[in-house]
């Protein structure tokens, strides 16, 4: 199973003086069970791109294939696609509207044609997955905290049992713990259920920690596509695009400037800690059979 974008273009205001490419010749393939981070500055085309992936927007040219099928092809069931590729918008809690949490989460599956009973089974399961305690289920969604509302909204998409989950900045406005909790739950969906995840985020730290692969968009074009350590090695180019690398990457580069031969592709606190300890305590590293203190002072 996969999503494939093939020379995707999206033109706003086609044929007018305001004609502008929102997406320009974007191609990639996201395989089954991948965890992809999507980054880019405001207006880089990220949101336009993800709306193509479940057929909400139609490409000006180019194609999207879901499991090999052209989603704009004749007779393709796009309604069905939308429940297989679940999209969680920015600030999804603004879309909550039902009288209680459980009914709100039932809305999606009921729309898929399930009975109230079946929908409730799905809703209960989804709410459990996002870690919202049962005592909140009969409350009005508007009485909940920001993090709880966000969970309800994500559960609403999960209840449709999508194969792919796309989230547009799911942690914006949440406190650090709330952010970690939501991301950990998303990571668990990926790990335990094999769900394919596309995470749009402005936090390079979060992307470095969770994604296996990063797609970088800039002015409607795909600029980088690779594992975090490869992509963040281009931190100077990322800065020119209004992005950055995680703070840790800068620490590592600073140390290298001082001639410390720490690997340059480190992107998380844990990796940095281990690498620094290894350099400071080579004999301990030797005992565990790892590489020892290298050519210190000769770093470029």
């Amino acid at each position: 199973m996969s999503i494939r974008a093939d020379h995707l273009c999206h033109l706003y205001g086609e044929g007018t003086a305001f004609e502008q490419y929102a997406l320009k010749d974007v191609s990639f393939e996201i395989g089954d069970g991948e965890f992809v981070g999507l980054i880019g500055h405001t207006g880089s085309g990220k949101s336009t791109l993800i709306q193509h992936l479940n057929g909400l927007l139609q490409a000006s040219s180019g194609k999207i294939y879901y499991n090999g099928e052209d989603i704009d092809g004749d007779g393709y069931d796009r309604r069905n696609l939308r429940s297989r590729v679940g999209l969680v918008f920015q600030y999804p809690e603004h879309q909550l509207f039902e009288v209680d949490v459980l009914s709100d989460v039932c809305f999606g599956p009921k729309n898929q044609g399930l009975s109230r009973e079946e929908a409730e089974v799905r809703a209960r399961e989804a709410l459990t997955l996002v870690g919202l305690e049962e005592r909140f289920w009969d409350k009005s969604p508007f009485e909940l905290s920001g993090g709880q509302k966000r969970r309800v909204a994500i559960a609403g998409v999960l209840a449709m049992q999508p194969e792919v989950l796309i989230l547009d900045e799911p942690t914006a406005g949440l406190d650090p713990r709330g952010r970690d909790e939501i991301l950990d739950e998303i990571a668990a969906l990926h790990k335990d259920r094999g769900m394919t995840i596309v995470l749009v985020s402005h936090s390079m730290e979060d992307i470095a920690r969770y994604a296996d692969r990063i797609l970088v968009m800039n002015h409607g074009e795909k600029r980088f596509d690779g594992p975090p350590r490869e992509v963040f090695a281009h931190y100077r180019e990322l800065e020119e695009m209004g992005l950055a690398a995680p703070q840790i990457t800068y620490v590592v580069h600073k140390l290298r400037e001082h001639g410390i031969s720490i690997p340059e592709d480190i992107t998380t606190v844990e990796e940095a800690r281990d690498a620094i300890l290894e350099l400071l305590r080579p004999e301990r590293a030797k005992a565990s059979g790892r590489q020892t203190w290298g050519k210190a002072g000769s770093g470029e």
Partner: peptide, 10 residues
């Protein structure tokens, strides 16, 4: 429920 900057954490 708060955090510290990554350098502080490291």
């Amino acid at each position: 429920r708060l955090d510290v900057p990554q350098v502080t954490e490291l």
